[in-house]
């Protein structure tokens, strides 16, 4: 709309004025570009360049001489780094692991967030402000600090939860091989449910009151009102939170990285980012780059695939 305000104005002026106007216009275009320059340069250097560099780097391998005396040489390797990555069991396992986590944890978390948002939005809710602030707390906390906190809460000799289970005769080790992934899922649920709930809640607040009133006049209330009127209207917000959650799960790093030292099951290549970091750590930059590119493509495919899938279903319904 802002464009429309200026452009007709420019065209409508008389020929003599046009020349004057166009020098002023050129001057303004120049100022606009100057205002954009710092961001443009930094955007190119910090966002576009790393992507291009990774793409380029992923096509090369580094060769070191046996003794490491001469300089390592770079050799064009085509897609061999990609082949290596896709044949590497550790990397493939890391992808399967976050996939499993995404398929189980994301629906649990969003289901919980939806339930809480609907309850908070219902007529029966009291103390709304306090609950909102409480649910928001974990999201405001640095992920690393939250992970450190949970790593203590899971520690065998410290955990109040282990102690609690002990009282009822259960021996639960949150860091054991069988439970490590569940424990990580719990950390993510703790950290992000409130954030998703707030997004859904603000979408609920945007639903016009007349709509719910009308439904109530027709005798639709409580759960039926929530399920048949509110949830369908939440569709865009639900898709948005799901896509954010898919992306977040694919990028999983902090929680497992911090549990690594205490949980034997959490290996150094536990998630795709950790696997790529490991490859970079042993100076295999080509492989690290290829793994980053594969992860980016998979994340893109998963999130856009989900959006397309929901759009198609939306049309069919």
């Amino acid at each position: 709309m802002t464009i429309d305000m200026v452009e007709p104005d420019l065209r409508a002026t008389k020929p003599t004025a046009t020349a004057q106007r166009s020098t002023a216009g050129r001057r303004r275009t120049r100022s606009a570009l100057l205002f954009l320059l710092p961001f443009g340069l930094l955007f190119a250097a910090m966002m576009l360049a790393p992507i291009c560099y990774s793409l380029y780097k992923s096509l090369f391998t580094t060769h070191r001489s046996g003794l490491g005396l001469s300089r390592p040489t770079e050799m064009f390797a085509g897609f061999s780094n990609y082949a290596t990555a896709l044949h590497d069991n550790h990397f493939l396992m890391s992808i399967l692991r976050v996939l499993l986590l995404g398929v189980v944890q994301v629906p649990v978390m969003l289901g919980l967030a939806l339930l809480l948002a609907l309850l908070l939005d219902s007529r029966s809710a009291r103390f709304k402000r306090i609950f909102q602030v409480v649910f928001f707390l974990p999201f405001a906390m640095p992920g690393a600090i939250a992970a450190i906190m949970w790593s203590f809460l899971y520690a065998r000799n410290l955990s109040p939860f282990t102690a609690l289970f002990q009282h009822i005769g259960l021996h639960v080790d949150f860091l054991s091989d069988g439970l490590a992934l569940v424990s990580i899922g719990n950390m993510m649920t703790w950290a992000y449910t409130g954030y998703n709930m707030l997004i859904l809640y603000s979408a609920l607040q945007a639903i016009p009151g007349e709509l719910t009133e009308a439904a109530e006049m027709d005798g639709c209330s409580g759960w039926r009102l929530a399920w048949h009127v509110k949830v369908p209207l939440l569709r865009p917000a639900l898709i948005l939170t799901t896509v954010f959650s898919i992306i977040g799960t694919a990028q999983l790093y902090t929680e497992p990285a911090i549990l690594q030292h205490d949980a034997p099951a959490v290996t150094i290549t536990y998630t795709p980012i950790m696997a790529a970091q490991y490859a970079a750590g042993i100076n295999n930059y080509g492989l690290a780059a290829a793994e980053s590119v594969i992860l980016a493509i998979l994340t893109f495919v998963a999130s856009f695939g989900f959006m397309k899938f929901t759009q198609r279903r939306g049309l069919g319904a």
């Binding site: 966002m47 790393p50 992507i51 560099y53 990774s54 990028q251 980012i273 970079a280 690290a288």
Partner: peptide, 10 residues
């Protein structure tokens, strides 16, 4: 976070 590792390599 998607840019972190590429930035590190660069």
């Amino acid at each position: 976070s998607m840019f972190a590792l590429p930035l590190y390599l660069m």
